[in-house]
Every structure is written in structure tokens, then in C-alpha cells.
């Protein structure tokens, strides 16, 4: 056994232990911390495999930011996990079958790191041999990522942006003001206004006579609303813990 293989095996055993510990614990705070350790051990494994860029990302995102985000979630939902209602027999069978199929699949995979693997026959040799002459960038990962494949990275950047737009739509905003069609024109009403309240408001307007369609309790145009909602995190945030 070479030293590298020894380190590989130790790290993989640590990964397995951490994974089992995450499943066993009912304390979600401990589970989040163990998940952070899992990411850190994975990062170590990536370093041993000479994928330092991936290890960097795993350590920064997996062990760093996502642990903080999970802790933020725990602050909302509490750190106790309920006991599952079902017996673990059926999930165990599914997992065992899947795992068995996957292990069977690895028996037909080419040996790890061999030079004649399909993955090492395509464009990888070209990048490794010619990228420095063509770009004079010593880090092959960077030259592939940002120069040869800069279209792909552009798409990735857009994907990251799109992802946060989706998350913010779900989490950072309150309910949106509604647009309804009333008396021949579209008006904006506050979120959560029920049909009965609206009917009462319209009735009051028509009986009062003055003020026109924009008077009364109906919020006209929602002019102040977007400002309020834009600052939801600061409004709700304040001092925490």
C-alpha cells in the first residue's frame, strides 16, 4: 500500500463514519456540524486526488457558507428532529439494492487515473500539452475554465444569478400586492385583502361619492409598498441573538 492509498483509505473511512453519524443523530445542530466536517474531509480527499481547485471550493462553500446557511435555517425550525413514523425496512432495502448495483458498476469502470481511460483521451491531453503555449497561463484549470470554455463559465455565472433570483423570490419578499379589475380599470390592493373587505371598501366609496376610484381604503398604485418590501431583510433583521 502506497502512502497515498493509505491516506485515501483513512479519509474514505472518516467520510463513512461522518455520514453514518449524520444519519444516526437526532440533534440537527450536531448533524449540521457533522455535515461541515464531511465537506472538509471531502476537500482533503480532493487535495489527495490533485484537484486543488475543487478542494478549495468544497472547503469554502461546503464547510463554510452552506454550514452557516443551515445554521440560519435551524434558528427558524429548531434543532430537534422527530422520530420517523415509518419503519426503516423499505428504505434500507432500496438503499442496499442501489448500493449493490453501484458497486457492481464500478467493477467495469476503467482503473482510476489510467492514461488510456476515455476521459483522458478526449480533449484533456490537448489542454495539458498545448494550453500553456497558447495562453501562457500556468494553471490549466483556469485557462480551460475562463479562456477555452469562457462561454460555459458565462452561462454558469448567469445560472448562479438566476438561482439567487429564485431563492430571493421565495424567501426575501413578503406577499405581493394584487392587481384586480374593478369598475372598468385595474387597481392595486394590499396583499391579504379579502373579497369581503374589498366589497365593503367599494361600497363605502360609492356611498361617500367623493375621492373617486382611488380614495378609500384601497391602496392606490401601491406606491409605498415596493419600498417597504425592498427592505424586508433590514426591516425584519435588526439585532439577532
Amino acid at each position: 500500500m502506497t502512502p497515498v492509498e493509505f491516506v485515501d483509505i483513512v479519509l474514505l473511512i472518516l467520510l463513512a463514519i461522518t455520514g453514518i453519524a449524520v444519519i444516526r443523530t437526532r440533534n440537527l445542530f450536531a448533524a449540521v456540524m457533522l455535515a461541515g466536517i464531511y465537506s472538509l474531509v471531502s476537500a482533503g480527499l480532493f487535495v489527495v486526488m490533485d484537484a486543488v481547485d475543487v478542494a478549495f471550493t468544497e472547503a469554502a462553500v461546503g464547510a463554510g457558507i452552506s454550514t452557516v446557511l443551515l445554521l440560519g435555517t435551524l434558528a427558524l425550525v429548531g434543532d430537534k428532529e422527530h422520530k420517523p413514523q415509518h419503519t426503516p425496512i423499505l428504505p434500507l432495502i432500496v438503499v442496499l439494492i442501489t448500493g449493490g448495483v453501484l458497486i457492481y458498476g464500478t467493477s467495469q469502470m476503467p482503473p482510476f487515473g489510467a492514461a488510456d481511460n476515455p476521459a483522458n483521451q478526449h480533449v484533456a491531453p490537448y489542454y495539458l500539452e498545448d494550453s500553456y503555449d497558447e495562453t501562457h497561463v500556468p494553471n490549466v484549470v483556469t485557462s480551460v475554465l475562463a479562456s477555452y470554455r469562457s462561454y460555459d463559465t458565462m452561462g454558469e455565472t448567469a445560472v448562479v444569478f438566476t438561482a439567487v433570483v429564485g431563492v430571493l423570490l421565495l424567501l426575501a419578499r413578503g406577499p405581493l400586492p394584487q392587481r384586480i379589475h374593478h369598475d372598468g380599470e385595474w387597481i392595486t390592493v394590499r396583499p391579504g385583502t379579502t373579497r369581503e373587505e374589498l366589497a365593503a371598501q367599494f361600497k363605502a366609496e360609492t356611498e361617500g361619492g367623493g375621492g373617486g376610484p382611488e380614495g378609500g381604503g384601497v391602496d392606490p398604485g401601491g406606491g409605498a409598498d415596493p419600498e417597504d418590501r425592498g427592505d424586508t431583510p433590514s426591516g425584519e433583521g435588526g439585532e439577532r441573538g
Binding site: L69, G72, V164, L168, L171, A172, E236
Partner: peptide, 10 residues
Amino acid sequence: ALFYAFAGRR
């Protein structure tokens, strides 16, 4: 922004 979105909720 993600951090604010998670941490800003009460």
C-alpha cells in the same frame, strides 16, 4: 444575498 435571505427571517 442568500445569507441575508436566511438570516433575515424570524
